[in-house]
């Protein structure tokens, strides 16, 4: 075999190789999942509580701090318009729905409701999980409340107050999917994994959307109509405080708390 024959066979083989390897390395199609904008898992690193020059560190026992960390989440700019929900595919809802507009941006007087505010890096220890359940209700083919804050393995009581079936279907790390056909039916479930935010949906009524902020510690809150939050018992130290909204995304700020008193924090979201 002469050089030209060898080189042309090699060239052909090389073309085959490269043509096929391109195909083989095509990334598998990834289904899109509804990731709430810019959620980040809480950093696993154990942060040592640091002192500021003027404050003494308190032992990091849970609830020992009597500090009240509070504040407000603000919004500036044009609030995105809510859309009308077409419930005609499920006529039963047309009857019972009290409100058929989306509620993705509950913002009044520049204050944002439904923001999950939490400490990203509290002292790493095993915190007491409350036995008191957090309640999530399905009323008028909507979720009430829109955002719940709950600890890992804390009971969540899910109620169907509607005269028709819903299925409760959280997505992401805490996924399950249970039928709730009867009015008044209650289920007690626990979320096993930390996730901010776990989206919750109903497949029968696809417009239904709510969120759960699930963390391993008790230092979180959900803002109310006045955009206000309040977190108690954080031990002295410096932390990252985050505010996460299902549609607006996440904002963070650094805070330092002492052994007593009040600490204020504010967040500023703008129009997307």
């Amino acid at each position: 075999m002469n050089v030209l024959k060898i080189s042309s066979i090699t060239a052909f083989a090389a073309v085959t190789f490269f043509a096929c390897s391109d195909k083989g390395s095509e990334p598998a199609k990834k289904p899109e999942s509804p990731k709430p904008a810019a959620t980040k898992p809480a950093p696993a690193a154990a942060e040592k509580t640091t002192n500021t020059a003027t404050k003494a560190a308190a032992p990091a026992t849970e609830g020992s701090g009597s500090v009240v960390l509070s504040g407000v989440v603000n919004f500036t700019g044009d609030i995105p318009k809510e859309k009308k929900i077409d419930m005609s595919s499920q006529p039963g809802c047309v009857k019972v729905a009290k409100d058929s507009m989306t509620n993705d941006y509950r913002i009044k007087d520049g204050k944002v409701q439904d923001v999950f505010v939490y400490v990203k890096n509290p002292p790493k220890k095993k915190y007491n999980v409350p036995k008191e359940p957090v309640v999530l209700d399905q009323v008028g083919c909507r979720y009430t409340p829109k955002v719940i804050g709950v600890m890992v393995k804390q009971p969540v009581e899910i109620i169907n107050s509607d005269p028709m079936m819903h299925n409760i279907h959280p997505l992401g790390k805490n996924t399950f999917n249970l039928a709730m056909p009867n009015q008044g039916m209650k289920l007690k479930k626990k979320f096993k994994k930390e996730q901010v935010l776990t989206p919750i949906m109903c497949d029968v009524h696809p417009w239904m959307k709510s969120y759960a902020g699930v963390v391993k510690h008790p230092f979180f809150a959900v803002t109310d109509e006045a955009g206000a939050f309040s977190i108690k018992g954080l031990p002295a130290g410096t932390y990252t405080l985050a505010a996460v909204h299902g549609a607006l995304g996440e904002k963070t700020t650094e805070i330092t708390v002492g052994t007593s008193g009040e600490v204020k924090a504010e967040f500023a979201f703008t129009a997307p």
């Binding site: 052909f12 085959t16 096929c20 195909k23 083989g24």
Partner: peptide
């Protein structure tokens, strides 16, 4: 003849590798 050998070799390569050269 050489062309056909090349083509055969190529198709053999394609089928065994299955365009799955990983």
């Amino acid at each position: 003849r050489n062309l056909s050998v090349l083509l055969l070799a190529g198709s053999f390569g394609l089928t065994t590798l299955g365009c799955d050269w990983q």
